[in-house]
């Protein structure tokens, strides 16, 4: 564990807490893409199957359980509890166009052909693009509430901090995983446009609004 990895994990944790609190406090999931949340639930489910095979640490187990449970809780809030507030007309991204290619790619480029390994690789590929339905929704409506922007900023920062963690691990431990690194870079690049708007608008107290 190094400082980049820890702050990355904490940013990820913060993002999820912000999202759950926003939905719970406002009793509304307006502006939140249910499609992205479905993808995150698939990502965590396929990646954390090792919960039943390998014990790393209490921290590791607790975080994995939290990410899994919170992703299902978020789906419950969006699709059941606050269904009436879900903005499905603007959440029209076809997730099969992300899930299918991620799976095919995981079958083609993976470290080993075992069930756990292929599913881990699939989850890494899928995570890198899982935010696209949410970004698509923001671009479609042309705006995002500030709280949604904070959520996106924390969620995007998490993988960017992981990249620093991977550089650190490569330098200090001569340890690296090319699949995670390339996917992590793709994931971070997808947020760049948003990061720019966040710094130039949201941090200056303005609402995130795209030019018409």
């Amino acid at each position: 564990m190094n400082i980049f990895r820890l702050t990355g994990d904490l940013a990820h944790l913060l993002a999820i807490i912000i999202l759950l609190l926003k939905i719970w406090k406002t009793r509304s999931c307006a502006g939140i893409s249910g499609k992205s949340q479905i993808l995150f639930a698939i990502v965590y489910t396929t990646r954390y199957l090792d919960l039943v095979t390998t014990f790393v640490s209490a921290y590791n187990t607790l975080m994995k359980i939290f990410f899994l449970a919170s992703s299902y809780a978020t789906m419950y809030l969006i699709y059941i509890k606050f269904k009436a507030t879900y903005d499905h007309n603007h959440d029209t991204f076809r997730i099969e166009f992300l899930v299918a290619p991620a799976f095919v790619l995981a079958m083609l480029i993976t470290h080993a052909y075992t069930l756990l390994e292929v599913l881990w690789t699939f989850s890494i590929y899928l995570e890198s693009v899982a935010i696209l339905p949410q970004l698509f929704m923001v671009s479609k409506t042309g705006e995002a509430e500030s709280i949604t922007s904070h959520y996106l900023f924390a969620l995007g920062s998490y993988r960017a901090l992981y990249i620093l963690n991977w550089i650190y691990r490569y330098v200090m431990e001569n340890n690296y995983d090319l699949i995670a690194i390339v996917a992590g870079i793709v994931q971070t690049v997808l947020y760049c446009d948003f990061f720019y708007l966040y710094v130039t608008k949201v941090l200056k107290g303005k609402k995130l609004q795209l030019p018409a």
């Binding site: 090792d50 390998t54 590791n60 975080m63 994995k64 470290h111 080993a112 963690n165 340890n175 995983d177």
Partner: peptide, 10 residues
Amino acid sequence: EDWGYKHDEL
């Protein structure tokens, strides 16, 4: 194959 690394990171 470095499985430890894979299981450790989130």
